[in-house]
Design a binder for these strands. Structure first.
Length: 750
DNA sequence: CCATCCACGTTTTTT
DNA sequence: ACGTGGATGG
């Protein structure tokens, strides 16, 4: 009995096919990660491939982490030398080594979208671009599109030389790239573009990586864009052992550059490619699967496949239309209570999926009043929060003053009396002299030109210099505390005392925990290393498996997950599918929405609720939508009878029409204000319930034996109340003495 | 230089 | 409805 016996025939075929290009079309819930991990094990164990020669590439850190874990679990010896990472961190690793060949410094910084925006702002200023007519965001998205298609500024200019309306974009693109280069910075798209450029211009480097990555596996292949495709096809072109896994029906990221043709045309690009379809679904009941199949069938641009399952028929799908968004939320609450009571479900078995983040509010509100614990996924990114960016900007400036944006960000935070005019003067001095912004601060000549503000600027430069000295003997955590104390940043927030300020403080505490974690778990913790890690991390994957709460998130972020009970909320034309796709000329936009719907349906394992509201508050006005057109694509025999809207023998299409008629009814009633007003501050609630906070009391004390998730068991040596959190010193049996924050370490008494 | 007011725009999201 | 960002006046 080998590990491969647990696979089905198709899965096994995919695992055993190790040489040459391979396309695995893996339907939702068909066990694709299992296939990838088993394939890696097979390569090593049966084909004697050196783990060093294997690369598995994903999109998100989370996916990479999960893959790593599962690979480690199945591959015994040598699993650590398998390269498991995201596209972006792969590129960073390569570029850190060789980007000097493209004329950049190897210690380049990575700009996130906020950085991009402020850079573009200064580009527009320089080029006298009217940002009323051409929004920075807009220009950036066009540039991003070009980069995703591997079109250089020069090429872009050629392609659009007769298009007057693109003239601005052409100029902006060129100047933007120049600015990035002079800041020694790359944006996220550049990471990929520059790596491909590097390989194109330097066959020796390319060959070195081709030799290293002899077996390449790409997960979620349907989400790749053109540059990513070029990157992997260059790497694979020597040995041709490229295995891509994906599902064209789950391609939902066209809006951010994913090129669905990468998967649809794989066989054309690699004519000798083997194609294997995984169609057995291990997740959902027949009814749910059938509904998904029937919906997705309406798409033209797809590879035909039909998911099947040997699971039972299961419960029928519940389709319900409520009066408004709040009643929709009430309905969800009542169903959760009922299912929990009658069927013994836990909160964590439920998920609420919606098309737009704005929909979460109404649901949150009702969950709070019903005391149902929930976790909201998505929204504002942790590392994009103002306070976090401020602190990181300080750290970046201390680490190296190369990042102009970081320096400019904090030069007047907290208020030092250095305003926009002064900053502009310094910038133009820097520009004419070719100095970096920070270096200019240290030039006497520059300071003098500033007159009265000169002293303030000088003080600032001195302050940074002082922190730089401290960096040499302080840990990153101490350094951060030093920044927070000496700038008075924290004090300012404390004095403010608002819920929002408290929220920010707890975010800062969380950042400190992350720093502490980095320092505890890294061989040679370095400030630059920490900043690097942080630059490529997007979300706080603080999913606490132990606690029992339901999940709220957009359909997009639900991809790859599964839940016993799924509520699809706001299934209304105009919302899901969204306006944009309904009004779009391009029929493929509607197909993308349909795929999104397919993703949502296939998240459900046992029970699926599809909900819509007759009226809904959106952008401050009440809208009247009819139920989603996708509902009409689900055969009525899969839908449970419901007196309100589904009568037996009435097709889903009829129902839709019935609902549609109501749309025309004029509703004169002004919206009930008490209903529209949020009863509580959801943010505050969230903070109180779910954010990391100082433990009220520890259930262990000095001398107790405790268990840590990474370090194993140990004895508590000391506990210090550090104000924000307890700092616990533990002597671990295997790894020795470690200091850590109690709220972060999650020590368990044994 | 800073505080305050108003206009704008608002799918989806990763890195 | 609501938050962000730019313009305006003190």
């Amino acid at each position: 009995m080998s590990i491969y016996d647990t696979l089905n025939d198709m899965q096994r075929e995919a695992v055993f096919h190790t040489e040459g290009p391979l396309l695995i079309l893996a339907g939702a819930g068909s066990g694709k990660t299992r296939v990838i991990t088993h394939r890696i094990a097979y390569l090593i164990e049966e084909k004697s491939v050196n783990p060093w020669n294997i690369m598995a590439i994903t999109f998100t850190n989370k996916a990479a982490g999960e893959m790593r874990e599962r690979v480690d679990g199945i591959v015994g010896f040598g699993s650590e030398s398998i390269w498991v990472s995201t596209f972006h961190s792969t590129c960073v690793r390569i570029l850190r080594r060789y980007i000097d060949r493209l004329g950049y410094g190897n210690s380049f910084t990575i700009y996130d979208s906020d950085d991009q925006k402020s850079l573009m702002k200064s580009v527009c200023k320089k080029l006298n671009i009217d940002t009323k007519k051409y929004k920075e965001k807009n220009i950036l998205s066009q540039i991003s599109k070009a980069k995703n298609d591997f079109i250089s500024p020069e090429q872009y200019a050629l392609n659009n030389q007769n298009d007057f309306s693109k003239k601005i974009i052409v100029q902006a693109y060129k100047s933007y790239q120049e600015q990035l280069k002079s800041n020694n910075a790359l944006d996220f798209d550049d990471l990929l573009v520059k790596t491909v450029e590097l390989f194109k211009g330097n066959p020796d480097i390319l060959e070195q990586y081709q030799e290293r990555f002899r077996y390449i596996m790409v997960d979620e292949y349907q989400d790749t864009n053109t540059v990513q495709f070029r990157l992997i096809s260059m790497l694979a072109s020597k040995y041709k052992n490229l295995c891509v896994v994906g599902d064209d029906d789950q391609s939902i990221y066209k809006f951010r550059g994913a090129n669905i043709n990468n998967i649809l045309d794989f066989e054309k690009v690699f004519p000798d490619a083997k194609v294997i379809k995984l169609e057995q679904n291990y997740r959902s009941t027949q009814n749910i699967l059938n509904a998904a199949n029937e919906v997705i069938k309406n798409n033209k641009e797809r590879k035909s496949k039909k998911l099947w399952s040997d699971k039972e028929q299961g419960d029928k799908i519940t389709v319900k239309t409520l009066e408004n968004g709040f009643m929709e939320a009430d309905y969800i609450v009542s169903q959760i209570k009922k299912l929990k009571e009658e069927k013994g479900y836990k909160y964590s078995d439920f998920a609420c999926l919606y098309r737009t983040n704005a929909q979460s509010r109404a649901i949150e509100e009702r969950l709070v009043s019903a005391s149902i614990p929930y976790k909201l996924v998505g929204g504002v990114n942790f590392y994009q929060r103002k306070e976090i960016k401020d602190i990181l900007a300080y750290l970046k400036t201390i680490d190296n003053g190369m990042d102009d944006l970081a320096v400019r960000r904090i030069i007047n935070i907290p208020k030092r009396g250095i305003g926009a005019t002064t900053v502009e003067k310094i910038q133009s001095y820097a520009d004419t002299k070719g100095y970096s912004f920070y270096d200019s601060l240290k030039q006497e000549e520059c300071i003098e030109a500033l007159g009265r503000s000169g002293t303030k600027v000088k003080n600032f430069a001195g302050f940074i210099q002082m922190l730089r000295t401290k960096k040499n003997y302080m840990s990153i955590r101490e350094l951060t505390n030093e920044i927070l104390e000496t700038t008075g940043y924290l004090e300012e927030l404390r004095l403010e005392g608002t819920d929002e300020a408290k929220d920010r403080i707890s975010n800062i505490e969380e950042l400190i925990s992350k720093i502490a974690d980095y320092e505890e778990n890294t061989e040679n913790p370095e400030l630059s290393g920490f900043l690097e890690e942080v630059a490529l991390i997007a979300d706080i994957d603080s999913l606490d498996e132990n606690s029992d709460y339901m999940i709220l998130m957009t359909v997009h972020s639900a991809k790859g997950l599964e839940f016993p009970v799924v509520f699809m909320c706001g299934m209304e034309d105009g919302l899901f599918p969204g306006y944009m796709s309904i009004n779009s000329e391009d029929p493929s936009d509607m197909e993308e929405e349909r795929r999104l719907c397919y993703v949502a349906i296939t998240r459900a394992m046992e029970r699926l609720f599809i909900l819509s509201a007759r009226q809904r508050m959106l952008h401050g006005e009440t809208q009247y939508n009819r139920p989603s057109r996708f509902l009409g694509e689900i055969p009525s025999e899969l839908i449970a009878g419901s007196r309100d809207n589904v009568k037996r023998g009435m097709s889903a299409k009829d129902i839709m029409e019935t609902m549609g008629r109501k749309e025309t009814r004029r509703i004169s009633k002004p919206s009930d204000r008490s209903m529209a007003k949020p009863i509580f501050e959801s943010k505050a609630f969230e903070a109180r319930q779910f954010k990391v906070k100082k433990a009220d009391g520890l259930d262990y004390g000095q001398g107790d034996r405790v268990k840590h998730i990474k370090f194993g068991t140990g004895t508590v040596v000391a506990i210090n109340d550090g104000g924000r959190d307890y700092e616990v010193t533990v002597e671990f049996d295997s790894v020795g003495v470690k200091k850590m924050f109690a709220s972060f370490a999650k020590l368990k008494k044994v």
